[in-house]
Amino acid sequence: MKILVCISKTPDTTAKIAFTDNNKKFATDGVQWIINPYDEWYALVRAIELKEKDPATVLHLVNVGGAENDAIIRKALALGGDEAIRVNIESQDSFTIASQIAQVAKEGGYDLVFTGKETIDYNGSSIGGMVAELLDLPYVSLATKLELEGSNVKLTREIEGGEETVETSLPLVVSAQKGMAEQRIPNMKGIMGARTKPLKVVEPVAVEALTSIAGFELPPAKAGVKLVPADNPEELVRLLHEEAKVI
């Protein structure tokens, strides 16, 4: 059994969002970087659990980006995984990234490719589906549970207003979300061990991007809250009906 977990680097949830270069680039000054929470808490931890169940499982991590991503990759390796692969290319559009991951997945012959449901920066929810299509594999997105029974896989995925159980078989691509696993904190042994785990750097395959970012903008500032006195909540209802016109 070989598992590949896609690890993305994102600004910390509390990072200040600002732009430079005429609003064309995200301002990275002072930004704390983290492993994309969906990749870490759900995809990676579930993969680690599967390896704990079956220690013969090979667990690799993949990241697409420059050498500045290595610190994040080591953090992920501190949680678990045998080795990491970084595709050395400046992050571009999701199709370029997915194409690099698909190439790594193809060469490594993985049975299961795991991603988080989306990254918290571009919120595209696109990588898993693109990788699945490029590899011609089934794709279960927004999965909250995954159980292996030989090469048969039972999953639960989100649907509007509920969930659905599905069955498919390996090889498979899955995007994971809350419910799949619980966040873990790396222990000292993991952190020490991560330093010596292999981190292979591979060169990218040539792919033409399909989209590019023409610019960013911040949402208009809120006018400020209109406070209604606590002894007159009826006024709130009136405002919502007559002014905001939402009820």
Binding site: S94, F95, S126, M130, L210, T211
Partner: peptide, 22 residues
Amino acid sequence: NVTGKALAPRLSARLKAGLVAG
């Protein structure tokens, strides 16, 4: 929506058509 999130990226990769998700 949940369906589009599963479908649109696959379609994008299949058609080599750029996707604006969301």
